[in-house]
């Protein structure tokens, strides 16, 4: 029996999940990382991706679009937007990609001569598109 830790997934609108889990795979800004009990305290930002939660009752997956995670005694993920994987269909997914694409174009216009923020937005968009491949939805190719 593996050790468990307290895990909370909250979005600004509601608490999506709260309970004891054995491990959580979170899409960190600088790479995926799996958190298990007694992880060193860490605060990291998230990139758009899939979060996999392994608990005693089985595995559940969530699509997150960004936010941050706080790892201490317990793990708290504060997601900007989080959707259970089974709730994401082609339509929702396309809306998410479209949102990322709009943000990218807006950034491009706002920072014409600064590559930094534009590259960041492009990365977000690419991450968003990559999710589609992982969950078996055909991603619409982004228009960069």
């Amino acid at each position: 029996m593996a050790d468990t830790m307290q895990f909370d997934l909250v979005s600004p609108e509601r608490r999506l999940m709260s309970g004891e889990v054995t491990s959580v795979l979170i899409p960190g800004a600088e790479g995926d990382l799996t958190i298990m009990a007694n992880h060193a305290p860490l605060i990291t930002t998230l990139r758009p991706g899939i979060m996999t939660v392994e608990g005693e009752k089985g595995t559940s997956q969530y699509i997150v679009t960004g936010g941050f995670a706080e790892i201490g005694e317990s793990l708290t993920v504060l997601a900007e937007k989080a959707l259970p994987r089974e709730d994401v269909d082609q339509e929702t997914y396309e809306a998410l990609v479209q949102e990322a694409q709009d943000a990218y174009h807006q950034t491009k216009e706002a920072y014409e001569n600064e590559p930094g923020p534009v590259d960041d937005a492009a990365k977000l968009l690419n991450d968003m598109v990559a999710i589609g491949g992982h969950i078996g939805l055909s991603p619409k190719q982004p228009n960069l």
Binding site: G28, A29, E30, A40, P41, L42, I43, T44, T45, G72
Partner: peptide, 11 residues
């Protein structure tokens, strides 16, 4: 005690 990833300012 916390580690930060990327770093504090970026977060």
């Amino acid at each position: 005690l916390y580690d930060y990833e990327p770093d504090e300012e970026a977060i």
